[in-house]
Design a binder for these strands. Structure first.
Lengths: 99, 99
DNA sequence: AGTTATGTTCGAGAATTTACGAACTATGGA
DNA sequence: TCCATAGTTCGTAAATTCTCGAACATAACT
């Protein structure tokens, strides 16, 4: 069972989080994960290679935006909504806003 | 009199804005500009070369985060608070929050 | 006109990020 | 055990970004 690095809620870094969210692909990922609650890696990025998606998942994960848990053969990704809201109140609302 | 490119309020792009804000140097610039209302380029970045600062001012300007106006020999930079708030409500509050 | 102060632009090198194929790992099922 | 599925890691190439010196432009002042 693979173990992933997830930063502490307390060590979330705003520039790092903004950087993770500043990519259009990842922004869309975040929105879809938020809408679905929890999503496998495969559920996103049907058009991109898996290795590219894996790169983006990692960027979001290591910035503390999402949490990845292993469930059998799949990886389920969820937004770290509470952690983000606690540390950067309002940020998620901005990012999830449809514009 | 030099003319700068400033994107329309309506064409502000979230990934681009987040990208501009995702640099620690620029984040600090934005906070100090916000606190002061309007600041010359020289008032920031006393420790960095002018060309580096100019690069960061440009990034913020072209993302639509700040507006630069020429006042005699100096350039005055102000946050585009209204435009940002109209397009991405709450974003500025998150970014200016002291954490 | 000459000088000084303020910033920009240019060019180049370093560092970071992105993209993606190929090889690999882990899980579940036949 | 063999196989298919899900996803990661590795290696490399391309694109972006960052940094900074040097040269340039503009305005104010003498």
């Amino acid at each position: 069972m693979r173990r992933f690095f997830h930063p502490d809620a307390s060590s979330l870094d705003l520039p790092r989080v903004l950087q993770a969210l500043s990519d259009p692909v990842r922004l869309e990922m975040v929105r879809r994960i938020a809408a679905a609650g929890e999503l496998t890696c495969g559920a996103l990025g049907e058009d991109r290679p898996k290795s590219s998606m894996s790169h983006h998942f990692r960027a979001l994960r290591e910035a503390g935006v999402i949490r990845t848990r292993v469930a059998g053969a799949v990886h389920l990704n969820a937004l770290r909504g509470d952690d983000l809201e606690a540390r950067f109140p309002g940020l998620l609302a901005v990012v999830l806003e449809k514009s």
